[in-house]
Write a protein that binds this DNA or RNA. Sequence first.
DNA 1: CAGTGGTCTAGACCACATC
DNA 2: ATGTGGTCTAGACCACTGG
Lengths: 249, 249
Amino acid sequence: MSASQIDAVALDGAGPLYDQIRRAIRDLILNGAWPPGTVVPPEHALMERLGASRMTVHRALGQLAREGLITRRRRSGTIVASPPASHAMLDILSIPEEVRGLGHEYSYRILARRDGRAQRPVVALFELGRAVEVVHLTVLHFADGVPHVLEERVIHLATVLAAGQEQFAAMPPGDWLLQNSLWSQAEHAISAVAAEIDQAQLLAIGEGEPCLLVERRTWNQREPVTAVRLLYPGGRHRFIGRFGPYGKV
Amino acid sequence: MSASQIDAVALDGAGPLYDQIRRAIRDLILNGAWPPGTVVPPEHALMERLGASRMTVHRALGQLAREGLITRRRRSGTIVASPPASHAMLDILSIPEEVRGLGHEYSYRILARRDGRAQRPVVALFELGRAVEVVHLTVLHFADGVPHVLEERVIHLATVLAAGQEQFAAMPPGDWLLQNSLWSQAEHAISAVAAEIDQAQLLAIGEGEPCLLVERRTWNQREPVTAVRLLYPGGRHRFIGRFGPYGKV
DNA sequence: CAGTGGTCTAGACCACATC
DNA sequence: ATGTGGTCTAGACCACTGG
C-alpha cells in the first residue's frame, strides 16, 4: 500500500456513497491499476481518505468481496483477488484443466498461425472490427491422445500486445491469455452443428456428426480481447449448471 | 400481514443474526408459507419481533431483495416477489415466450400422455426414483406452424398433485408448472445429439441432423418436481449468455 | 401527511490471524 | 499483543409515495 495507491481512490459524487466507493475501487481493479495481489487500504485508512464512516466503507468492500474481486481476511487485510479460473456454467476457460479434471492426460498442438490484418471471414465471424491486427490460431486439444476439442481463436493485438511475440509453447493460448490479459466481459453462445469434412478429420469423427459449438468473445472495458470457437464432438460432451429460481445455488 | 405471519419468522441461533433473519424469511418463501404477493412485515415490526436493530433487519431484507425473492418500495412496503419467468443463461422456462420473443406465432400439441408408474427408461433417464407415480408427456411446440422444439416431460405426482387432473389445454406443461408448482433448485445439461428417425420426422428435419439437447431437472426442497428433455433442431438455435470474470454483468 | 425503505454515522464488541 | 475485518446497535436524516 503506497500513498499513490490510496490517493487513486476517487469518488464521482453520483449515487450512494457506498456505491461510489465500490465503483471507484472496482474500476482501479478492472483497469489494471491494482493488479491481483495488490493490498487494498484497510477500512480505517479509506474512512479517513474518503470521509466516510466505517460501516459505509465496509459495505462497499463487502460487496466487492461477494463479487469476488477482493479477498478479505482478518488481521492480514484485503487484497485484490485473482480472476477465478473457471466460472459457473460454461466457463471451460482452461481446456487443460477440463481434460485433467476428467482424468485424462492433456496435450495440444498448434495447427496453424497467421498474424496480421484480419481476413474477411474472421472479421464477420468475430465482429471484431474491419482489418484490425490480430493473431489467428487453430489449435487441437487432446485427451489421452484422442482429439478432444478443436479451437479456432483470434486475439486482438491492440489489446494484448504481448501475444505477437508469444509462441504458445508452454501452454495453449486460452491459458496464456488468462495469465497475460484482463477481461471484464464475456459473451457465450452454444449451438449444435454438423462437423464439416475438415473438422471431422481433425477430430477423428464422421463428417456430419453432431458437435457442440461454443463461441466466446471477451472484452476489457469495451476493447475486444479475444474470440474463440470451440468445437466439441457431440455426445461426448455436456455442459452442466445448477440454479435456483432466484439465481445460482 | 396477519399476526400469524410475523410469528412464523423464527431464528435458529446459527451464525450471524442478519443471516438467521435472511434464512428464516427465505425458508418461509420457498416453503410456500409466504406465496408471491404476501406482504412482508415492515422493518420496525421485525425489529420488535426479533429484538434486532433496524440496520440488521435491513441488511437481511436487502440481501433477499438483491436475490430477487422480495421487492421493496418506499411507503408501500415489501412483498414476496413472483419467481422470475426467465433466468440468465439457459432458462427457456417458457417456450411460448421464447417463440413469441423471436417474432413468431406460437402453438403446441400434446402428442402423448401416459399417467402412472414410471417406466424403466424414464426412471433411468430422469433419476426420479423407481416406479414412482408420474405424468409422462410428449409435446411438440411450433413457431409459425413449423416444429420448433420437441419436449418430453415427466412430472412427479407426489410433489405436484394437481398435475393428475390437468389437461394442459390452456398452456403447455412447462408454463402450467411455473404457475402451479414451486421449485428451489434446477439442473441443466446441454449436449449435441443426432436426431433419431422418429424425432426427425416430428421436427421435420433429416435423420441424423445435429440437435441441441437441453435437459432440465428441478426440485423443491429435495423433492423432485419435474424433468424435461428439449430437443432443438440444430443450427437454428443458440443459447447466449453474458458474463464478467467475477460473475454476471 | 405519514409510513415506508435507503442511507449514513459514531461507536462498540468480538473473532481471528499474525507478530 | 495488536491490527484487521465481521457484526451489531441506536439514532438520525432523507426520498419516495400512497392516502
